[in-house]
Design a protein around this nucleic acid. Structure first.
Lengths: 157, 157
DNA sequence: GTCTATAGGGCGATAGAC
DNA sequence: GTCTATCGCCCTATAGAC
């Protein structure tokens, strides 16, 4: 409404109800986010660089993840039609990340799968930390810590 | 109201407004969560075991983190009195985790700090993934992936 | 396709009896 | 300290003019 400048009543000319508006908004958000991630994760660069690029991409940390935050929205949770695109987004994102990990030498399927879950969770949690601390750099610190251990830079002795 | 069996009107005898009820609820939740984490992270076990125990503690993943989810609640975000305990929770939790990482040999301050952010973010993101996928084991997979790389079990070549 | 006006329901809060 | 009743606001949705 703010961007288009139209009033609240006019919205109902384009969408029959809030539910359909939410569906459209989520579909656009998910498609956009997946396209961005796919671009980074399937570029021609070496697997290692693609992972780092995905993890360290600049993000508006204080805003939170536009998809991940939906998992804490009651309106979305209660509605399968809104829930499903969120599930698909994370399924596909994890699959994309797993495929990159799988390219690394000596990586079995379980290993790449678990690391993909960890990498995607790390980003989501980084958003949460940045918001909780009101500190955009929190996400960056979390990512740096993960990259440190990925680099084998002294994990546990 | 459900647990106590009292009606909505009676609530206002004990709390002047929704704000104070929220404050009390958040204070209890934060204190409880911090006490649990502190118990695990400052026990007598070796640092490595304390970290693993904190990370792998059984969690109700589908319910989400009772503190972390507040970062996506508009009512909390808009209110500094509600926001502050959430910030303190994560500040202290990260400090506790950092202290344990710092015990590991060859770990400088930046390294322990970044790993603490990563570990706490990983748990928060694991909750988000479990909720998004409606799959309690997603959090466990993320934790396992992180522990894999912490163990130096082949990060990046 | 846009607007204004308004209905209907839920929620936060208050009033006052017991 | 609990209850019922009710006010007032916001939000979703509808009606109908232009």
């Amino acid at each position: 409404m703010q961007v288009s400048g139209v009033g609240q009543g006019s919205l109902y000319h384009h969408f029959p109800a809030k539910h359909e508006l939410a569906q459209a908004a989520i579909a656009v958000t998910v498609a956009d986010a997946l396209a961005t991630a796919e671009g980074e994760l399937t570029s021609g660069s070496p697997a290692r660089e693609r992972l780092i690029q995905y993890l360290t991409r600049p993000r508006d940390a204080l805003a939170g993840c536009r998809v991940g935050r939906l998992t804490y929205e009651q309106y979305v949770i209660d509605d399968d039609a809104l829930n499903e695109p969120v599930r698909q987004y994370f399924r596909r994102l994890i699959a994309l990340v797993q495929d990159v990990f799988a390219e690394l030498p000596g990586m079995d399927e379980g290993g790449s799968r678990r690391r993909a879950y960890a990498a995607v969770a790390l980003i989501q949690g980084g958003y949460v930390l940045s918001r909780a601390l009101d500190e955009p750099a929190a996400l960056d610190s979390a990512v740096s810590g993960f990259v440190d251990v990925l680099n084998g830079d002294a994990g546990l002795p």
